[in-house]
Design a binder for these strands. Structure first.
Length: 772
DNA sequence: TCTACCTGCTTACCT
DNA sequence: ACAGGTAAGCAGGTAGAG
């Protein structure tokens, strides 16, 4: 049979002592497939092995063959051997034979990636093969492959299954699993009750029968899955949740791998996508969906279960439904499917692995084609020394009129292209010299692999952007926009990966050359503009904020656009006018500013804030709201109004005229062992109290609290649980002080300090000019 | 003994 | 298992004033 598939996940199993590559996914019709390939073997390279090493390798029972090859290694052609064996899982053992790990190449590439690179596969594949009996596999079809290749991407319907468990707190007994399934726009739900072991057995059956592509739930990574695994192991049940009957595996104590399916914790995804102020399911459901959770008291779940079982079951199903809806709402599925298309690896690997995996996928293929050696990642000899980063220009306190923000379009990728920065071009005799003295050969002599790859990506992005502009169908337009945005994200992640200390192609000089060129570029522009009498008031890494000196928006825009065009032409890197702000406020701190947008047109009138408490998830609502109000006064040039309102807010807080919900502070908590003085931290104190109460807590979660006595050292806090605050007495003086602190940073620019905000009448000043 | 100031630790943000 | 630069709050200390 022949068909096309979007690949959800790839892995391998062992059969008769040899590896079988398996790809899982769905065709356009939404039928699920398992594709099997049996004739692929693992291999790696060793540069100039010694006699003893070669002998030892030759003696390995698992060996299939040893071939002589030539590879480009650090700019030289070197002799190497290609060692092919049968067992992917034994490669780490074979690596130990070689003393110097630097001479072993490509021996740390997960087997399914090796298959992906060598067959040059992508997010979707076209295949032909023989359909066989389903056997142990749970998919609609199982095909033994004859051929497989990359094909144009498409988005088939994927099946998502969300689940949630309830258990007693004291005895940790599993009571119920509730679930919701979403497929082709339809929802279906249900539940499983009974003896804990039976619940788990039926759950495994359910997953096998429903065969979902994505498994989700709220906090399943750290709570529900480990809990179910615990019940399974105690009951001697094999947790065969995978599409190939294997059991889930936890990677680095964090992500789960279930062959053929993506495990996508809704909590983790929400955290990554929207950074909510609080991370409980209740809070996120309200914020994102406007829906509230059921009102079952989890702390008294044992009694609730006795009293009204139906209600607890309904509540459990609802939680699974909410998690599913949240995952759909934040639109991650399409996004990661598109990133899978851009980075050419299966959906699961995009969703649940780091950026270096995406970069690997593009770089290793090209390196292999060109005979360039692929070293291994080095997690052991990590260089502790940090490379110097971007330049941040100081900003003076004040209110500035008609400020244009110009910034470089993908600055780091552009610089890598412009200066041919690459591990293949770094050379003592290079013609291009970076400000820190590192040399790269000119593109005329040798075009770098990375610059070429980045240029391809730039072209791809421009192509998507052009298509998007000409597209009239809204759905198609959204898809094209998402594609161009994923390409941009991938391009921008190159720098970070190449500047990281462990990445296989890392060279300290590459990372520091990129940032050195960037600093030189931005400082050059600032000096140049200043010498022309154009005042640069701020800049961060790839941006400059200039005073246009104009009074109307059109002149300000055309003035700054012409400056941008001149610079772009002169430097060969695109710099664009991102916004014009009128006015822009700063209290004199880097990475913090607020402004009113006057350009672009579609953002006109918007308040934009960077860095300030309004942006921070660990500030309490009252603080954010108060500062927003004050900014609105200031940006409308009503300083007196700002001062009056600031005093009013502070005095209200001081006397307790404020809702307790506005005083909630939330912060994340790591593993307790991480901290030097865990007991003196409010977030850890809160987490410990929550655990004592029997609340769900896993490291990495945000916890919320109210400060009840800030005089104590460390300050005393109480966990915040919505609708359960009657016995909490906030330390109003503390909150008043903090709000005053926040607001006075703004008012001090106009000569009104914290003490005067909190106390006596302010000096009578009526116009803005009087304050300078 | 109280306050001002400093340092180290920590989190979250900006690009 | 992508980077560095930065602000700011709290804990806990010390120096100097009262």
């Amino acid at each position: 049979m022949e068909d096309e598939l979007r690949v959800v996940s790839a892995s391998y199993i062992t059969e008769n002592g040899g590896p079988v590559v398996e790809l899982f996914g769905r065709n356009r019709k939404g039928e699920s497939f398992t594709l099997l390939y049996r004739n692929f073997l693992p291999y790696f390279y060793v540069i100039e092995p010694t006699g003893t090493e070669l002998e030892a390798l030759d003696k390995i029972d698992d060996k299939v063959k040893i071939e002589n090859v030539k590879l480009q290694y650090r700019g030289e052609t070197r002799n190497a051997i290609k060692f092919t064996c049968r067992s992917p899982w034994r490669v780490p053992e074979f690596r130990k034979i070689i003393r110097d790990q630097n001479r072993i190449l490509a021996a740390d590439i997960p087997f399914h990636f090796r298959f992906y690179y060598d067959f040059d596969l992508g997010s979707c594949v076209k295949f032909s093969g023989n359909e066989v009996e389903r056997g142990k596999f749970t998919t609609d079809h199982v095909v033994v492959l004859d051929s497989i290749e990359k094909t144009a991407d498409f988005l088939p319907p994927l099946k998502i299954m969300s689940f949630d468990i309830e258990n007693t707190i004291k005895t940790q007994r599993l009571l119920v699993i509730g679930y919701t399934i979403s497929f082709t726009g339809k929802y279906e739900d249900g539940y499983i009750v009974g003896e804990p072991a039976d619940i788990v057995r039926q759950f495994v059956e359910l997953v096998r029968k429903q065969d979902p592509d994505v498994i989700t739930g709220y906090n399943i990574d750290g709570y529900d899955l480990p809990f179910i695994e615990g019940v399974a192991s105690k009951g001697g049940i094999e947790l065969k949740l995978a599409r190939d009957m294997t059991t889930p595996q936890r990677i680095q104590g964090q992500f789960w791998r279930i062959h053929g399916r993506v495990v996508a914790d809704a909590w983790w995804n929400v955290k990554r996508e929207i950074h909510p102020k609080q991370e409980t399911l209740a809070f996120v459901s309200i914020e994102l969906l406007g829906e509230s959770k059921g009102d079952v008291d989890r702390l008294n779940i044992d009694r609730e279960w006795e009293k009204d079982r139906e209600r607890v079951i309904k509540y459990c199903i609802k939680d699974s439904y909410l998690a599913l809806r949240i995952l759909e709402k934040i639109d991650v599925l399409d996004k990661y499917e598109n990133m899978s298309t851009v980075s050419l690896i299966p959906l699961d690997d995009v969703w649940n692995s780091g950026n270096s995996t995406l970069i690997d996928s593009l770089v290793i293929r090209v390196a292999d084609r060109r005979g360039i050696a692929v070293p291994m990642n080095n997690f052991i000899n990590r260089n502790e020394e940090k490379i110097e980063g971007g330049y941040v220009h100081s900003i003076e306190p004040g209110l500035y009129d008609m400020v244009a923000v110009l910034d470089f379009k993908s600055m780091y990728p552009s610089l890598m292209i412009k200066y041919n920065i690459c591990f293949t071009t770094i050379s003592e005799d290079g013609e291009i010299i970076s400000p820190n003295g590192t040399r790269f050969v000119s593109p005329e002599r040798k075009r770098g692999l990375i610059p070429e790859l980045l240029e391809d990506l730039m072209r791809t992005r421009d192509k998507y952007k052009l298509m998007m502009r000409n597209e009239t169908d809204p759905g198609r337009k959204r898809y094209l926009n998402s594609m161009q945005s994923q390409v941009k994200i991938l391009m921008n992640s190159f720098y970070g990966v190449f500047a990281s200390s462990f990445y296989r192609f890392t060279d300290q000089n590459i990372g520091s050359s990129i940032t050195a060129f960037a600093r030189e570029t931005i400082k050059g522009i600032i000096n140049d503009l200043n010498s022309k009498g154009i005042q640069v008031i701020y800049g961060d890494t790839d941006s400059v904020f200039i005073k246009t000196g104009k009074t109307d928006v059109d002149s300000a825009v055309s003035f700054s656009v012409s400056i941008g065009e001149e610079i772009s032409k002169r430097l060969g890197i695109q710099i664009e006018v991102e916004r014009v702000l009128d006015p822009l406020f700063s209290h004199g701190a880097k990475k913090r500013y607020a402004g009113k947008v006057v350009y672009p047109e579609n953002e006109r009138g918007n308040l934009i804030v960077r860095g300030y408490e309004i942006r921070r998830t660990d500030s309490f609502d009252l603080q954010s709201e108060a500062l927003t109000e004050i900014f609105n006064y200031i940006l409308n040039r009503d300083v007196n109004g700002a001062l009056r309102r600031a005093k009013e807010i502070i005095s209200d807080v001081k006397s307790g005229r404020v809702e307790i919900d506005k005083l909630v502070i939330s912060r994340s908590v790591k593993d307790f062992e991480f901290y030097k003085e865990q007991d003196s931290l409010a977030n850890v104190q809160t987490a410990k109290k929550l655990m004592k109460q029997g609340q769900e807590f896993v490291p990495g979660m945000k916890v919320s609290w109210i400060v009840v006595d800030s005089k104590k050292r460390p300050q005393e806090v109480e966990p915040y649980i919505p609708n359960q605050t009657s016995n909490i007495k906030p330390d109003y003086q503390y909150y008043a002080d903090r709000v005053a602190q926040t607001l006075s940073r703004v008012t001090e620019v106009f000569s009104v300090d914290e003490t005067s905000l909190k106390n006596v009448d302010i000096k009578k000043k009526s116009t803005l000019e009087d304050f300078f």
